[in-house]
Design a protein around this nucleic acid. Structure first.
Lengths: 247, 247
DNA sequence: GCGTTGGCTTGATCCATGTCAACCGCGATA
DNA sequence: TATCGCGGTTGACATGGATCAAGCCAACGC
């Protein structure tokens, strides 16, 4: 059920508590680098929050685009569906990351965004974001950086898909996850995967069996300990070395 | 030898001739949708042009970023180099397309841009572009669309690399080229490849031999006629059908 | 406690593409 | 005109990962 926003002053505390200016993700997310006063202007914009239950869509390919979303908590995947039924996971997103940038180009979303665990996002109406970023230089520049970073990230994935073999891909994937958990204050060495082997495989251009075998191999070699979705990284440099195994 | 810019009024005609407002690519490029007056303000910004000879770098990975480039004429590839020596072509760019968007995120270029034929580009100082797009809403929005389109394009490549087999990839590649030539007023059915089989292979995540064999196969099947870099597409729908050959 | 289900693992086999190698053809250069 | 070299083609063979199939494990409902 949607939470109604109380109008009296007393409860505005709880509103402030969930505003950008008070969000502990602000250094990872859109507000990076803004002054206090600028932050408050951004708060006005980011007023709508939305809960998305595990398995539900945040948006679907083809739907009209009018907002991007910042993940407050939880975990998402995005995937693209081809006419012939093939699909591929194009990314996994976690708290502090933005979803929906692909929709700007055509005013329609071009992929599906699906929650992999119960999640909460902040909706950022895009035209209002453009308006504010015409006024706040820092916001404008940071937003451009975020879009550009997405492009660079995609190039990394292209590299992975184009030049790496199965085990290198999985090693790169684990190291990437580990690094992103670390910058969110979680353990770099121990985490739960939110996605299935099949989803990992789809993202990495591999079949689930190949992913599973690679996990087993890494475990045999003592690089990681796997128990279903629970991963412990035992030997970071070992994984890094795996990534350069050239063909 | 660099062409010196004359200062007298008489020759300013030739300057106008090469401004955005008079550029026949303006409907494909950054100026899309701008009014005449806005166009003239953009002209001020896009004052530096640069010739890049076949084989030369427009920029290199690691170099400082301060401008994006619009291709006036010619053909480029971008590639990324991994520490271990592997590299991959991340894209081919033609007239009217923008180069360098990846540099915004870190203020450094993250890939190499190399001319595949003698080319000419317009340098667009990025901070001035941000300035102008704070004033011209249409420009801002269009620029965002261009960046977003790049993200969507990259997802398409990820899809290609992750789910398609060799012949599907090549078919998709040819159809994409054909479509882009068409929107530039060239024949959709006949064109010269600017890149080698190896570069195509690198882009598509294939070895050059595989690319070559796929070309031969397409020719045998009557979909195209190949003679080295000269391609004629004989059967568009045949190629499209090839793309859905599922595995 | 028992069956069901979805996700995961593992083995056996197959095949698309990589690898290695020979050769071709065209343009550049002497 | 002869030679060289690079890019392209083609063939023979090797192999990584896909495919097919069986079985395992943990969570969950009955």
């Amino acid at each position: 059920m949607p939470q109604t926003r109380p109008l009296n002053q007393e409860v505005s505390l709880s509103v402030i508590k969930t505003a950008c200016s008070n969000c502990n993700l602000r250094e990872l997310c859109l507000p990076l680098g803004l002054s206090l006063e600028e932050l408050e202007r951004l708060d006005d914009l980011v007023s709508t929050r939305r809960r998305v239950k595990r398995g539900d869509h945040l948006y679907r390919a083809g739907e009209g685009f009018d907002a991007i979303y910042a993940i407050r908590s939880g975990f998402f995947k995005t995937d693209v569906l081809l006419e012939d039924g093939r699909d591929q996971v194009t990314g996994f997103q976690m708290a502090g990351e933005l979803l929906g940038l692909d929709g700007i180009s055509t005013e329609h979303h071009t992929c599906n965004a699906i929650a992999l665990e119960d999640s909460e996002v902040c909706a950022i109406p895009f035209s209002r974001l453009e308006g504010l970023s015409r006024e706040i230089h820092t916001l404008q520049h940071h937003f451009h950086k975020v879009m550009s970073r997405e492009i660079v990230r995609d190039h990394g994935v292209m590299m992975l898909l184009g030049t790496m073999r199965a085990e290198e891909r999985l090693a790169a994937f684990l190291l990437n996850l580990s690094q992103r958990f670390t910058s969110r204050g979680f353990s770099h060495a121990e985490f739960y995967l939110r996605m299935t082997r099949e989803e990992i495989g789809s993202y990495l251009g591999l079949k689930l069996e190949t992913v599973s075998r690679a996990f087993s191999k890494f475990q045999e070699e003592g690089h990681i300990a796997v128990q279903q979705k629970h991963i412990r990284i035992l030997n970071v440099s070992g994984l890094k070395a795996l990534m350069n195994h050239q063909r």
